[in-house]
Design a protein around this nucleic acid. Sequence first.
RNA 1: GCGCCCGUAGCUCAGCCGGAUAGAGCAUCAGAUUCCUAAUCUGGGGGCCGUGGGUUCGAAUCCCGCCGGGCGCACCA
Length: 582
Amino acid sequence: MTQTKTIYAAFSAHIAAALDALEAAGTLPAGLNRGAITVEPPRDPAHGDLATNAAMVLAKPAGTNPRALADALVAELVKVPAVASAEIAGPGFINLRVAPEAWLAELAAIGALGADYGRSAVGGGTTVNVEYVSANPTGPMHMGHCRGAVVGDALASLLEWAGHKVIREYYVNDAGGQVDVLARSAHLRYREALGEDVGGVPEGLYPGDYLIPVGQALAAEFGDAYAKAPEGEWLALFRARAVAAMLDQIKADLALLGIRHDLFSSEAELQAAGKPEEAEKWLRAHDLVYDGHLEAPKGKTPEDWEPVELPLFRSTRFGDDQDRPIKKSDGSWTYFGADMAYHFQKAQSADALVDIWGADHAGTVKRIKAAVAALTGGEDGKGKPFEVKLVQMVQLLKGGEPFKMSKRSGNFVTLADVVEMVGKDVVRFTMLTRKPEAQMDFDFDKVVEASKDNPVFYVQYAHARIRSTLRKAEGEGFAPADSDLALLGAEELELVKVAAQFPRLVEAAAAAREPHRIAFYLYDLAAAFHAYWNLGNDKPEKRFIVAQDAALTGARLYLASQIGQLVRNGLAILGVEAVEEM
RNA sequence: GCGCCCGUAGCUCAGCCGGAUAGAGCAUCAGAUUCCUAAUCUGGGGGCCGUGGGUUCGAAUCCCGCCGGGCGCACCA
């Protein structure tokens, strides 16, 4: 994997070197904490290309005032060739202008690194397990699963770009009551396939047509052997067959979105292997599980409430409201009991864990975080890094009105339907145009709109324009060339400046676990490109192809080519195809 | 009642680890098309960053209270 040395990193090093020089000269005490120093593009471009707060941050501990320290720093910084100018502003900011040669070097770096430009080593090769989707294997994927699937998948790619090893994992909840319901529903379809008139699907079973082929397959495999048999004879068998069929379906649905997990972990297998028992034993030994009485639910008092003694995990020690049962009164594991063991298992093979959950599970975040902290860190130690990212609801709309599908497939809008209607790339990009913890509307009419209102098309269009231009140029005998990049002027450098932010953005987005930042960046990059493009409307000499100037054309085509590369890199993180033409 | 998320321009939303005069799109107003794709671009107007305190050189950002919206709150998954 190639590491990108960003221009920002280079300037951080310049500033560090300047501080070293001041220390050596005795101007600055040695050993000051430089952790709070930032180097970033100022909000207002008039303040230059980069600004640092170094003087403000260090003035107090150094026993001097920001302006005086800034003066000394500036004197050092102006010696650096890549620094075109350095001046003090405001309360003590140092505003830097980057020499054009340094920007052109960055442009050349994009060309040299190509599809790897933006990859970073900040992750240090540590392994992050990202668990996402994990929909119950009781039916096809529906839109409720979609956002988490896309966010999780994009996050996984983003973490890879930032230098992590990533495990993409799916937890298969194949041990709970709902898969028994699935088995019974499949049995009904099985009898139906044998010719029995089963009437309608009774309340409490899954009504969707998607179980019809499962019933037919069971009928073909087993004949009428289980048609009249008591449930005990077929439940486990039918459950296994139905779950397998549903998982195949889910994998096919995910494939439509371009998602493929590395690992599918079965809750049933986890339990069969005795993992929850192991966790319980360890927790009991550390007084983190005890037999106690569950409190009555808060806020409402169920009429049939009875206190029962259950094994409880002391999640209150980690900030939860109450201790949580890990087993039910019938002796089987609660979802939480098994999930706890599952997270412990995941932690064995990863340095950090990330779960992507629907917001409807927000209430259980504290207990699982408590469990991970306990199992990976002991009762008071700090556990492995573990984050739960909550993905908020998506409201489906069409023309501003709530959208309802036919009930043919079982009373929900399937992911497959949506992908068929609007396409994979639109689904993926649109899901990433909002931060995940904010609710979002998904309007079928708006997301397929081919205009700049629609970020997907806006970004795609920028790429298509670039490719189109390069094709046309090739037809006219021009090719991108990096031999005369110095011919590029201020307007072209503006584009390079936006491009140069990509590597640090990847790092920041990965650190924050926020892939949506890439989508917003691509929009900004596309806007910068479109803006430059339109200079050519008024001024033909600003177009990429200037027929009478082969050297300039070559340099501009090189720029265009690298911007196109960057769009592809960003889209690759998001799992969206870059198109050749619109 | 409790927990979590959200509250930024008329609308939909960004705002990176606290940084300078808070940004973008839509809508609105005024402009640009003999052109590599105008599916685009340029400019104007539009703000008590829900609200009241606190922390400090500095707060949309961090902390606390309150208001409003969403989600959740049994041994379900």
